[in-house]
Simulated scan of single mutants.
Amino acid sequence: MPSRDDNHTGARIKEQRRIARLTQRELAARIPYSYSLLNQVECGARAATPDFVAAVAAALKIDVTALTGQPYVTELQQDRLAALVRPIRESLDLYDLGADPGLQTRPGAQLAREADDLCRTVRATHLRRAAVKLPGLVAELTSAAWTTPTTELWQALASTYRTAHDIAVKLGYFDLSSVALDRMAWAADRASDASLAAFRQYMRALVYFREGEYTIGQRLISAGHGLLQGEALTRENIAVTGQLHLGATVIAARARDQHAVDTHLEQAQDCATRVGDASEVHWMSFGLTNVKLHRMSAAVEMRAYDDAIGQARSLRLPAALATSRRAHFLIDRARSEMETGHKAAALGTLMDARRAAPEQTRYHPGARETISGLLHMARSTPENLGYMAAWIGL
């Protein structure tokens, strides 16, 4: 079996457990997982799944990132992405400074198109390209919106804040992602855009989903629905309503509530049937395909891995599906294949994810933990697995 250093999630769980002065049995008693599994995760013999990590973090009252080790500083520096984070952080701090007299801004329609292009770039998982362009566009839109406060400009600014959130999450900077969501609320309020405000609640709910705070996540989803009550039944509002139900689906799955999973999936499917492919609405990729992807993700979260693999094999993803969603599907599939002992298939699926979206895959905790699990299942390390492990930073 390959040697292993202490730079893995299980080792960090062990360290934080000791800081909390808990034995393995004491910690196991506080989480919905067995002592045996905790023991295997801590020594690196089993992968730490996202739901397991969230449960441990909640029990120890620490942030999930203390256990996952994100952001992956070495890899970010190698990819020259770390240096791009500070300008984004600085641009988010311009929101209340008014117009910049030294900055010449382009016409509002052009800025709105560029904000849309940035969303499209992130969906295509070109994170570096988006991160380079984002700070300048945020600065320009901020100044323009203060100078000429139109709905279009405030909406475009809210969109760039959403892009900042997406980039921060994908690179592991969750503190920065929270700031971006606060700024998004600020701009959506000035745009008087209920669908944007509701969509922001969906993204906030996913933050708590990652942290294992499912009750708060469910409340945020309900708050999102509340923002749309009384609004016109437009295509946009129906799509956002459906996306809120999809967010509720994965939260319910993580909470092991099958009835809620089925209910939200049914309501999301109803919305998708009414609007068809609504991928263009806030770049959510909402539609019948996304409902199917969330149905599979729910199976993964509920550890019904055989069911998840069966669904994955029957899915036919359209060519137009956003690369970010395709990569997420592949990472979910690889996790299910590993958990059911299909080691070669899991490795091949992760390699497909890398080819589709290298930047997203490299910084995705699910991909990292699946490779970690494959390393410890292997009697010897195949060349492709060793290559992937080195690439992802293990």
Score class of each variant (00 low, 15 high):
Arg355Lys: 13
His328Gln: 08
Ile88His: 01
Ala320Ser: 08
Thr289Pro: 04
Arg303Asp: 10
Ala55Lys: 12
Arg190Val: 13
Leu111Met: 11
Leu265His: 01
Arg335Pro: 00
Tyr161Val: 07
Leu60Asn: 14
Val240Trp: 00
Pro382Met: 05
Met302Asn: 02
His245Tyr: 09
Leu134Thr: 12
Gly386Arg: 04
Arg303Cys: 10
Arg235Val: 06
Phe174Leu: 10
Thr234Leu: 12
Arg362Glu: 03
Tyr202His: 07
Arg21Asp: 12
Arg379Glu: 13
Tyr161Lys: 02
Ser324Lys: 11
Ala298Gly: 14
Arg254Ala: 13
Asn290Thr: 13
Thr160Arg: 08
Ala58Asp: 13
Ala320Pro: 04
Thr74Ile: 09
Ala253Val: 09
Thr125Asn: 12
Arg30Met: 08
Gly386His: 08
Ser279Leu: 07
Gly373Val: 01
Ala299Tyr: 02
Ser279Arg: 04
His282Phe: 15
Phe199Ser: 04
Leu227Thr: 00
Glu75Ser: 15
Thr74Tyr: 14
Pro149Ser: 03
Arg120Val: 15
Met338Val: 08
Arg379Phe: 14
Ala378Leu: 02
Ala47Gln: 05
Ala58Trp: 15
Gly386Asn: 09
Ser192Asn: 09
Ala298Pro: 04
Arg113Met: 03
Glu213Asp: 12
Ser336Gln: 06
Ser159Pro: 03
Arg256Ala: 11
Arg335Tyr: 08
Gly98Val: 11
Trp283Val: 08
Leu127Asn: 12
Leu81Ala: 13
Ala144Ser: 14
Val291His: 06
Gln104Tyr: 07
Arg256Pro: 02
Ala252Met: 01
Gln78Arg: 15
Arg325Trp: 14
Ile62Trp: 15
Trp154Leu: 01
Asp96Asn: 03
Glu339Thr: 05
Ser143Gln: 07
Leu288Asp: 10
Ala334Glu: 02
